[in-house]
Nucleic acid binder design. Sequence first.
DNA 1: TAATCAAATGGACAATCGTCCATTTATACC
DNA 2: GGTATAAATGGACGATTGTCCATTTGATTA
Lengths: 214, 214
Amino acid sequence: MAGKREQNREQNRLALIEAVLDSVAEKGISETSVSEIIQRAGLSRGMIHLHFGGKDNLVQAAGHHSSQEYYDGLEDLLAQAGDSPQERIEMIVRGDLGERVLNQRNVSIWYAFRGEARNRSAIAAFSDTRDARLRNMVLSAFTRIARDMNMTDAEAARDATHGLLALLEGMWTDYLLHPDRFDRDEAMRITFRFLAAMFPSYFTLKGAVVQPQT
Amino acid sequence: MAGKREQNREQNRLALIEAVLDSVAEKGISETSVSEIIQRAGLSRGMIHLHFGGKDNLVQAAGHHSSQEYYDGLEDLLAQAGDSPQERIEMIVRGDLGERVLNQRNVSIWYAFRGEARNRSAIAAFSDTRDARLRNMVLSAFTRIARDMNMTDAEAARDATHGLLALLEGMWTDYLLHPDRFDRDEAMRITFRFLAAMFPSYFTLKGAVVQPQT
DNA sequence: TAATCAAATGGACAATCGTCCATTTATACC
DNA sequence: GGTATAAATGGACGATTGTCCATTTGATTA
């Protein structure tokens, strides 16, 4: 067991990160100052330099932390998914549009970092949600479906992957700009409509067809 | 003709706005200070207060200006489009993904403002690209197609509108995060694949079918 | 040309920024 | 319980922020 010293230390480190994320979500990056952060964390001014060596490093760590939480949530869900490609894709869609990851706090944080991504390469690195891992999971599922359908179009699976991820991105933007009128069920329906149009015997308006018609 | 005085005045006003946009595109919002702006514009410190009453108002005006340019570009293109709904939709897609509006500078600016939108209502107001005007243009086109197809699904046109705009949003995000590997033709192909899947006799992989098969 | 006045200048100003370190606090070890 | 030491404190510091206004510039009008 970790000593109380180290335990407190880690706890304070985390408190600083959470304070940054709270502030970014509520006030935006430009208003997230050192004073704002330490006030929210209830800690002293010097802690940022002590734990992270400076404000920039702390903000970067907070971004990384938030990104990690997104993937953790998604992978938890995926662990529950079945083996069929359509089930896996459905899980990703439901996960990406579900309350656990798509909520006001996360969206605010996400787009705040995105806005700075272009100019801070360290931020850009983790800001790419749909990173290689997620992209490959979706791609392999679509590839299996395309093969199963005897599709001749070699680009179909790749395009479907790219398209689905872009569509989900767009839904997030919609939530960002209209959190009040955003309709989670509608977003899911639209996404499945897109999938059902491209792969009719694998998806329906309500989700995946668990037993594909062969 | 306007006097040289007023002419200079307007010219300086514009120079300030362009300086803000250049700085936001290159360095981001957080590094766009008064000093940065006036240096780029080659004007004196007091000009911001004189013309806009303060930095915040100037930044807001710059955002509004950028947004206006986006719509102007899109409407120019739309004026050249034919009357058929599929032609109008194709024009919107080609416009939104074309070089004139989708380029590094615009994407940087766009997302920089988006990142602050949640916390600055004035910015949120113009930050919503796909505003009512654009949305209605797309919706009316899809409604005509749905009627033409005798679609029974009342939500189909609305969902297609929402989905297409979300998909285009996602393509912009892709460009933001991977400007080097982004492929404009691929983005168009994917978009038309989505349209072709939902409305097979109106769109193909390469774009709209001008004469719909009835 | 001289007078007029809007436009533009650039520095003074207080406020706030992030950094850093001398000091204090509290845990861990002897 | 006393000592060692890592963790935490909070204020000093120079740099930079945005605002504002007394002054200068230069186009316009008499």
